[in-house]
Design a protein around this nucleic acid. Structure first.
Lengths: 244, 244
DNA sequence: CGGAGTCTTGAAATATGTCAACTCCCGTGG
DNA sequence: CCACGGGAGTTGACATATTTCAAGACTCCG
């Protein structure tokens, strides 16, 4: 299935209408957004924003997956965020970012020039409010990830990562038929997300296949067979702390 | 030197007046805060807030040091934040937190009941604006720490930690005479901040003493002797990415 | 003076990283 | 259509940073 990436969609028909920065907007407010917005698309692998770039626009991710990552001088890199549909790129009142944003699949962005957008924030409390809420959510996620990076074992990291994918794809309603889930990252990218090497990721995923926890239909699609075992393997407490 | 912790201070004389959540407030606005605020004090080691507690108040740290930390079922813990004077506890629009807040030294908090405070946010854009700014700063710091936790070596972690202490104490204007800096955490706490064990922290600090990078006057006070070497040891790029 | 908490140091264990070879895809271009 | 080539993943053997376990020393405070 190919999606026409550049197709203009009216806000009311937008797939991320109820989760993005516009979530709380009324019909009237949407009309304003409709005037200001424009779509940008990126091919898989393309950079969306580079560290220390001046931010000229901000926007919501409509289709696809992108990553935020930071890199040390010698090339070691650490992903600090995974952007799925409805996630926002850019910051209220900040003109720079200190990480790189890269499209890992083909990506469609619903963009706003930064100047008009800042005016919009000032005049539309619904947008400002949602933006704050989203920033706080990001902070919670970042801290949950700090726990993972600092204290979890390789196996726990992988299990937590898979569980997060399940939850986020479920919430987003982008579940594929059956239990099938898409794995949008290469193992190298997963490694950079989890603070591991790609070999360790490969081995741990292999073990979870052998354990009958996961089944892969192809390189990019899998399903969780043994959910309790997955949960157990995360190392989190049994009620499963939510990790959006 | 002992500070009278419970002494009520007027906002205009407050040591964190220009960095805390009230930073942008006008004199009139301060008068309102003055009415609402109250001081709370905690002894070193006391819990300030417990995970999943209902948040009944929020507040700014005036004196002392506190930590935010998350703990796994089996006891492994990871610090996810270090609170120094002017830092804020609590979230606009959130009634719970998902980590523990603990005083590591004696602590004074400038508190607001949550209900009046939320009204205040709604009516005082200066407060709301500063709160957002502080949340975004926290997010940046959290992501910088993700890079540290996921990709840095023990030595780089220690060096980065020390450098952060230097910068934050410098910014806060709490420098002690000369180059002396205070080390507010035990090595076990440092270990929990850096995702290491306390033994590794001890060994690495020992090496940095031998290398002539640090000198300790007593267990809680040290100075940086070789600043370039410290910077080099962080693993960051040479211009020294700011880590507030 | 005692004792608990903190720190140091050593030896041994181990999880993960490193290096290297090989396989499996999948798309491209001849 | 097939062969080729390169990216992605797998697997093994080995290296090593850090943890673990353990014992002892320091130091501050009651």
């Amino acid at each position: 299935m190919t999606i026409e990436l550049s197709a203009r969609v009216t806000c009311t028909d937008c797939p991320i209408r109820h989760r993005a920065v516009c979530a709380y907007c009324t019909g009237d407010e949407l009309d304003v957004l409709e005037q200001l917005k424009s779509y940008k698309t990126f091919k898989a692998g393309e950079p969306i924003l580079w560290r220390a770039d001046k931010l000229t626009y901000v926007g919501s991710l409509v289709h696809g997956v992108a990553t935020l990552s930071k890199t040390l001088e010698d090339g070691r890199t650490q992903m600090v965020g995974l952007l799925l549909p409805s996630d926002f790129i850019g910051r209220p009142g900040r003109s720079e970012i200190e990480f790189d944003v890269v499209a890992v699949t083909d990506v469609t962005l619903c963009c706003f020039q930064i100047k008009p957008f800042e005016a919009l924030i000032a005049s539309t409390p619904h947008v400002a409010q949602r933006l704050v809420e989203m920033a706080l959510d990001e902070l919670d996620v970042a801290r949950e990830w700090m726990l993972l990076l600092g204290r979890k074992t390789a196996r726990e990291k992988i299990a937590t990562f898979v569980q997060m994918l399940v939850q986020r794809q479920h919430i987003a309603g982008t579940d594929l038929p059956g239990q099938a889930l898409s794995l949008p990252l290469t193992q190298e990218q997963i490694a950079n997300y989890l603070g591991l090497t790609l070999e360790t990721v490969s081995r741990q995923l292999g073990i979870m296949k052998k354990n009958g926890i996961l089944r892969f239909s192809d390189r990019r699609h899998f399903e969780v067979i043994d959910f309790p075992a997955l949960q157990l393997a995360t190392g989190d407490d049994s009620d499963g702390g939510v990790l959006v």
